[in-house]
Simulated assay, not measured.
Amino acid sequence: MKNYKSLRHSKWDCKYHVVWIPKYRKKRTYGELRRYLGEILHDLARQTECVIEEGHLMPDHVHILISIPPKYAVSKVVGFIKGKSAIMIACRFFGRQRNFTGEKFWARGYFATTVGLDEQIVRNYICHQETSSTYLNSDT
């Protein structure tokens, strides 16, 4: 039996596979930034009542499986996470002293798809994408 979450008047299980890239697809998520970025993304997701259930940071892109309550739009949650994380990265790694708006660490846009019944396939893909050449296709 699935473990559904509850809001006041609804039961839900909304999970999304979300991918985004750094500006100009530069290989910027490595070393200390990679360790710090995981904490940032989890904290920002919690602030929006979301849970990152699976995630993987590649040098040039981010993959997450995120559970988002139906009262929030996916675009708002992803925009919040990308925007706030860019500001935090700029403060910690690029020597910014103030909370500047318009920090450009992430490229505009993202990819998102609902997970549905293929949750285990998506989890395996996110976890093993560096070691496997499989594609996100349930037919293969």
Rank of each mutant, 00 (worst) to 15 (best):
I66R: 04
R25C: 12
N3C: 01
R98P: 00
M58S: 08
E49L: 08
I89S: 09
R92A: 14
L44V: 09
F100L: 15
A73L: 12
T29W: 05
Y72A: 02
L117C: 00
L136R: 01
M58L: 13
K26S: 08
M58F: 05
Q129Y: 08
H63R: 07
L41I: 12
L37C: 06
K23M: 13
W12E: 00
C91K: 15
G95W: 09
K104Y: 00
I68S: 05
V74H: 07
R123W: 04
S67M: 11
V77I: 11
W12D: 04
P70F: 01
F94H: 14
F94C: 13
S85E: 12
Y72N: 10
K11H: 02
S133V: 13
G95L: 07
K82C: 06
Y24C: 10
K15Y: 00
H61M: 02
T29Y: 01
R92S: 11
Y16G: 04
I66Y: 04
G95Q: 09
G83T: 14
F93C: 01
N3P: 00
P22E: 10
H61I: 02
T131Y: 06
F105K: 11
E119K: 09
Q120L: 14
I87W: 10
Y16R: 09
I87M: 15
T101H: 13
E54P: 04
T131H: 10
I68T: 08
G109K: 03
L33F: 04
L41C: 11
K15G: 02
Y30S: 13
Y36K: 12
I81P: 05
F111T: 00
K84I: 15
T101P: 07
E103S: 11
H63K: 06
F111C: 01
L41G: 02
S75Y: 06
H42C: 11
K23L: 14
E49M: 08
S133E: 13
F80Y: 15
Y4M: 11
W106T: 05
Y36A: 12
Y4K: 11
G38V: 07
S138W: 12
A73G: 12
P22V: 12
P69I: 07
E39F: 10
D118I: 03
R28P: 03
Q47L: 07
L41F: 12
D60K: 05
P69M: 08
G95V: 07
K11N: 00
F100E: 15
I121N: 05
G116R: 07
T134C: 13
M88N: 12
R46P: 00
G109D: 05
S10F: 02
E54T: 01
E39M: 09
Q47M: 10
F100P: 04
S85P: 11
R28L: 15
R98C: 10
E119W: 03
R35C: 01
V51I: 15
N3W: 00
I40N: 00
R92M: 10
K5L: 10
R98F: 13
E39N: 11
I64V: 15
E49G: 00
R28I: 05
Y4H: 05
T101L: 14
G55D: 11
G116N: 08
L33M: 14
K11V: 01
Y135H: 13
F111W: 03
K104M: 13
E130I: 02
D43R: 10
K15W: 01
H17I: 03
S85K: 11
Y36N: 10
I21M: 11
L44W: 04
W106F: 07
E119D: 05
S132L: 15
G95A: 07
K23C: 10
Q47P: 03
R35M: 02
E130M: 01
A107W: 06
L41H: 06
